[in-house]
Design a protein around this nucleic acid. Structure first.
Lengths: 218, 218
DNA sequence: CCAACATTCAATAATTCTATTGATTGTTAA
DNA sequence: TTAACAATCAATAGAATTATTGAATGTTGG
């Protein structure tokens, strides 16, 4: 094979990976699948897509080998092909945050509009939890908590928070987390907690970021 | 802003980065710009594109903030916006090699067809050069060598190799390197060296990989 | 100023991508 | 077996991407 032919083929193959990532819905799907395996219906509901459209995008991701599908009864469960896929997405996301002022501004403005500028440094967090100064609250849907969560975290899904408020202590700081930096569930939870007199702040990272950093999970 | 609107906007912005990478020519441009700043003409010549087409792709990369342009006289010199862009491309490339058997096979078959299966481990290389057992040969075009090269490397561009063979020692192993794992220039050089009785092998990494690993460069 | 040259711009046709729609294929539970 | 349901398939119109062509812009050196 000529060197030129080889280059054409290999750059074409590699650009197929970028093509699979080159769509906002598919990025959101990857962010969601980083929480754990999900059915097509669940993905569609959580991203605001129709079932058919979600299915189509999932197949695009599958043929680029970024996700895999497993049949369980009448459901297809999709999951990331490997954690390296999440790492690639995270690398790309961070390049966007660092390099594109518009993207950074979008994120900051959104946080600001929720009165939630400061987020907790994850390094010091473990200490504070052990000392009983802080409580870690997972506000994602139950399914995602059960698929994997940060060690010692308590699960109260965002839409159950109001009715289960009383189970939370007022003498500890409550650290809420959700799917990751682009997820608003923890922000919403904090707003509710503040309105009811709790001390609460947000963990910037979500479960997948925590997990890929090798920190303790259940 | 509603959470849904925020997500739509931020995933759309981030997918613009992937869109810019979602083309084989643009990936090849990034691989080339990782060697150092280049004019449009140089890029076009080295990737087999027309000037107008190269210019158009460069503008696509520029508006995604992956590359930047600087005017020098009548030339526009393009370069990567930051080394993080190279790191993103490298992450994507490695995911492709690891996850897609077809891509891995393409690379192996190409190397095999050039009788060049083994490549040198870059960790032990520095020692061997210091001991005088090996000589590092940069076979990229002069411009790229001058823009930056591995410390202690000697420059003989691939197409000058035949006429400058005599300047190379026969009692040392010659380690050739070029732009990186997708570049064939080092393979071509090794073929020539073998045909003339030299001991030669290839460094898998190119200059940009070496540099981003923090190893010594000039 | 003019000629030469590097690059960009503008227009276009061919191709590819995307969301929607409705039909079809599998699977489970009654 | 049938009804209900999850997912996929197939077709399609509208939008976006791409290579090519030739013209336009901007810079340098004489």
């Amino acid at each position: 094979m000529k060197a030129r032919d080889f280059k054409n083929r290999i750059y074409t193959e590699l650009s197929a990976i970028a093509k699979a990532l080159a769509n906002p819905h598919r990025l959101e799907i990857i962010d969601l699948l980083a929480q754990g395996p999900s059915s097509v219906e669940y993905i569609a509901k959580n991203t605001g897509m129709t079932i058919a459209n979600a299915s189509q995008h999932l197949q695009t991701l599958k043929s680029a080998r970024l996700v895999k599908a497993e049949r369980r009864g009448k459901y297809s469960f999709y999951s990331l092909q490997s954690t390296d896929v999440f790492k690639l997405w995270k690398t790309m996301r961070e390049l966007g945050f660092a390099q594109n002022a518009q993207i950074g501004k979008l994120l900051r403005d959104f946080r600001k509009s929720r009165h939630n500028l400061e987020s907790v440094d994850s390094d010091k967090l473990l200490d504070r939890i052990e000392k009983g100064e802080a409580l870690l609250l997972d506000v994602r849907p139950r399914e995602e908590y059960e698929a994997g969560h940060i060690a010692s975290a308590v699960s109260i899904p965002k839409n159950e928070l109001l009715e289960r408020l009383k189970s939370l202590p007022k003498n500890k700081e409550i650290i809420a987390y959700c799917r990751g930096p682009l997820c608003a569930m923890a922000d919403d939870a904090i707003k509710i907690l503040h309105e009811h007199g709790y001390t609460a702040s947000r963990l910037e990272a979500g479960f997948p970021e925590w997990d890929t950093e090798g920190k303790p999970v259940d």
